[in-house]
Write a protein that binds this DNA or RNA. Structure first.
Length: 495
RNA sequence: CGCGGGGUGGAGCAGCCCGGUUAGCUCGUGUGGCUCAUAACCACAAGGUCGUAGGUUCAAAUCCUACCCCCGCAACCA
């Protein structure tokens, strides 16, 4: 493996507020990026926003704004979330960037041999100015729910991309893991999906039906449809095609996506790349969705969790911890405030925070804060590394916690406070105590390393606390917070 | 017979592929210990027909068959 690595995240559509799924994307990519940098790699880490399409145009109209002005006002929400999550991205792309637009038009021209003109036919609502799927039309009995008008059967000219040409190549790349789909069951799911071949996709719309988008080169009446525009970002953000250093980072090592968009990234996207004669990404990491108390998050149910609320109340590291460990990297996970707060108070506070505190306190009390010769931690790193390499971040954090627990147990076993008492009478007790405490610090420093991709702020705090050889003021790492669960420190009044 | 995932002590999961020690872990509950620490930490305990019914086997949570239940997906949906 070379020194340069590239990781990407899906670019969200900016017509709404950022949600937890976006935050999850940024978090997973960031954990990986930090881990690889720790291993000495140079990592480029892309993020961005998808800003074209009818929905945007409509929202802009509603707000009495020009579409670009509207997206200008919106994309910052996403940038703010990335920063809040503490994502160390290196490249930010907006699909309205002039370079991106030019590059997408170039890509279109390169794909010309695989593009043909066809007619798209479907149910169309004049009021919505858009087509609906057959399924939706059937569900509404052929009448648009918003406008109470019947759908019309309409045909329109579209350009199509002949991705069916690439079915075999893509299937083989996936089967032979040249383009790995993680986890394995997603790979099987997708292969099953394409067993009858990929179906060509429409990649443009008549301008009258899609006003806000990238113009099709050489055909002023047609505007590019979102997928070609949006998927291209992974390349254009690197400077493709004009800045040659894109080659230093492509193919992407990992592309982080949600399960809902796998088919586009495993079907259309590789077809585009093959059409351009560019290597396929090495890995698609497909994460699941975050449920709330076992149900899907949805606006109509009103159970949507705002990532900002978590971060503002508990801090970025607590957010990162919960969503990295308790939402399985490769599967759906569950969030409730109670689960979150239990994890925060018990695991971060009682396990990690407390062990750091007790060691710091003993060194301050017994040795005036002098740590003495630091011994490197001896915990076996292999299971952790294996989990990281397999992109199972939740398992890696479990491994880190094994170490935290074992340190608590170790302290309990050797009882440094008793050794401290024996210093009056036993000559070698002083040395023994110093060994025990410096060994404990060594283990904590190792834990800090393991945690640094996940909880960078915490890791840094620990390093500051012990790194100089003298224990610095011992601030509490994770003070107890009881916003959503009862506070055990206030005993309940007996009825 | 559309495809896939799953049903293991109160909750969440591991184990199943390659059958075999007292079915493991985290949380919760109870009891005890300890006092360095954030009412923390440590130990022990209670609690399970491993979805149901059959089958294979000396032996099945683990393999086979049928059935029941839950959850995703089902193609232009960011």
């Amino acid at each position: 493996m070379g020194k340069n690595l590239y990781i990407t995240t899906a670019i969200p559509y900016v017509n709404g507020k950022p949600h937890i799924g976006n935050a999850l994307d940024y978090l997973l990519a960031d954990i990986w990026a930090r881990y690889q940098r720790m291993n000495g790699k140079t990592v480029r880490f892309q993020v961005g926003t998808d800003e074209h399409g009818n929905k945007i145009a409509q929202k802009a109209l509603d707000a009495g704004m020009d579409p670009k002005a509207y997206t200008d006002s919106m994309y910052g929400n996403f940038e703010e979330l990335m920063k809040k999550v503490n994502a160390t991205y290196t490249d930010f792309v907006r699909t309205t960037d002039p370079h991106h637009i030019g590059a997408v038009q170039y890509i279109w021209q390169q794909l010309q041999p695989y593009i043909y003109k066809g007619t798209y036919e479907g149910w169309y609502c004049q009021g919505c100015e858009s087509f609906v799927t057959d399924k939706e039309a059937t569900a509404n009995n052929g009448v648009c729910a918003d406008h109470q008008t019947p759908y019309e059967r309409l045909g329109e000219d579209n350009y199509y991309l002949r991705i069916s040409d690439f079915t075999e190549q893509i299937r083989e790349a996936i089967e032979k893991n040249r383009m790995r789909i993680v986890p394995e069951y997603r790979k099987r799911e997708f292969l099953e999906l394409i067993k009858d071949g990929l179906q060509d996709v429409s990649i443009s719309r008549p301008r009258k039906h899609l006003s806000w988008g990238v113009s099709v080169p050489g055909d002023p009446d047609q505007v590019m449809y979102v997928w070609l525009d949006a998927l291209s970002n992974y390349l254009t953000v690197l400077g493709y095609p004009d800045k040659s250093d894109w080659r230093d980072f492509w193919p992407a090592e990992v592309q982080v996506i949600g399960k809902d968009i796998l088919r586009f990234h495993a079907g259309i996207w590789p077809a585009m790349l093959l059409g351009l004669g560019i290597d396929l990404p090495r890995t698609l990491l497909v994460h699941g969705h975050v449920n709330v108390s076992g149900s899907k998050m949805s606006k109509s149910v009103g159970n949507v969790i705002d990532p900002n609320e978590v971060i503002d109340n508990y801090g970025a590291d607590a957010f990162r911890y919960y969503f990295a460990r308790h939402i399985p990297t490769q599967d759906d996970g569950d969030f409730t405030w109670e689960k979150f707060e239990n994890a925060y108070n018990n695991e971060l506070g009682n396990d990690l925070g407390n062990v750091v505190q007790r060691v710091a306190s003993m060194i301050t009390r017994y040795q005036s804060g002098v740590i003495g010769e630091m011994v490197a931690g001896e915990h076996d790193m292999q299971p952790y590394r294996l989990a990281m390499d397999e992109l199972a971040f939740d398992r890696a954090l479990n491994e880190a916690w094994v170490t935290v627990r074992s340190l608590n147990k170790y302290i309990e076993d050797v009882k440094p406070w008793e050794i401290a008492k024996r210093r009056e009478t036993e000559t070698d007790a002083e040395e023994h105590l110093a060994d025990v405490l410096s060994h404990s610090v060594g283990t904590i420093m190792q834990i800090s390393d393991l945690l640094s991709p996940f909880m960078p702020d915490t890791s840094e705090k620990i390093n500051k606390l012990f790194g100089s050889g003298i224990v610095q003021s011992a601030g509490v790492l994770f003070p107890k917070i009881y916003l959503h669960t009862p506070d055990p420190r206030t005993p309940r009044v007996a009825k």
